[in-house]
Amino acid sequence: MPKGEGKLIAQNRKARYEYSILDTVEAGIVLNGTEIKSIRAGRINLKDGYAGIRNGEMYLYNVHIAPFEKGNQFNHDPLRTRKLLMKKKQIDKFTGEVKQGGVTIVPLKVYIKNGYAKVLIGLAKGKKQYDKRESIKRKDQKRQVERALKDYR
């Protein structure tokens, strides 16, 4: 998470397995009424989410925010498209990268920072199967080293 870390709400762990993350940016999310209450309760799922650029603005698609239990008629559509708040330069940079091809924009984390919901989005390039196996091997080796150091002490 960037400087001034907030309270981590949700994390897309599968994204780091499926993709190589080239660059990350923190963005605010435009939310409706009860959505922030659901997020604070941890009822958000980033698993199938992605971000896209439309009319020079960044949007978050397919991120599920569960309806708030006590929200009755004021509840929202769980899978609605949500606008991301970013600087124009950042959006232009991501637009250029995506237009070149081979990359996509995925949400990595959602957290609360200074009372506001923030999402960490990453510019991602898909991994091949052998890259995924290499990642698993590295993670296992790291775990074995940690275990050996723990036993050594």
Rank of each mutant, 00 (worst) to 15 (best):
I29P: 13
G52L: 05
M1R: 10
L120K: 06
M1K: 08
D77R: 13
I136E: 08
E57D: 11
A15L: 00
K3N: 13
Q73W: 09
V119Y: 06
I112P: 04
I9Q: 01
H76F: 12
F74G: 03
L79I: 08
V103H: 05
G4N: 14
K88Y: 05
A41H: 04
G49T: 05
A124E: 02
Y19S: 01
G28E: 04
N45V: 07
K139A: 15
G33I: 00
K87L: 04
D151Q: 08
S20W: 10
N55T: 11
A15N: 04
T81D: 13
V30L: 04
I136D: 07
Q90G: 07
F68Q: 05
H76K: 02
L84V: 14
M1N: 10
L149K: 15
Q100T: 11
Y116E: 10
E134Y: 09
I136G: 01
Q129I: 14
L149R: 15
E35R: 00
G56W: 07
L60P: 15
N75K: 04
I105C: 08
E5V: 12
K125T: 09
Q11H: 14
G4I: 03
H76W: 14
I9G: 06
E69V: 15
K132S: 02
L120G: 06
K3F: 14
F94T: 11
E146W: 08
H64N: 13
K88P: 05
D23W: 09
R80G: 08
P67E: 06
Q100Y: 08
Y19K: 01
K128H: 13
Y50C: 00
K87E: 12
Q100P: 04
G102T: 05
D48T: 14
P2T: 11
N114K: 15
K89Y: 10
D48L: 00
Q73S: 12
V119I: 15
T95R: 14
I29V: 15
Q141M: 13
V30Y: 10
D92R: 07
R143E: 06
I105W: 01
K88G: 02
G126P: 13
E26I: 11
G115P: 10
D131R: 06
V30E: 15
A117W: 07
G33Y: 02
D92Y: 04
T24R: 09
L108N: 04
T104R: 08
V145F: 12
Y59R: 07
Q100I: 06
L120F: 06
K150V: 02
A15V: 13
V30Q: 12
A41P: 00
I105S: 03
F74K: 09
K47I: 03
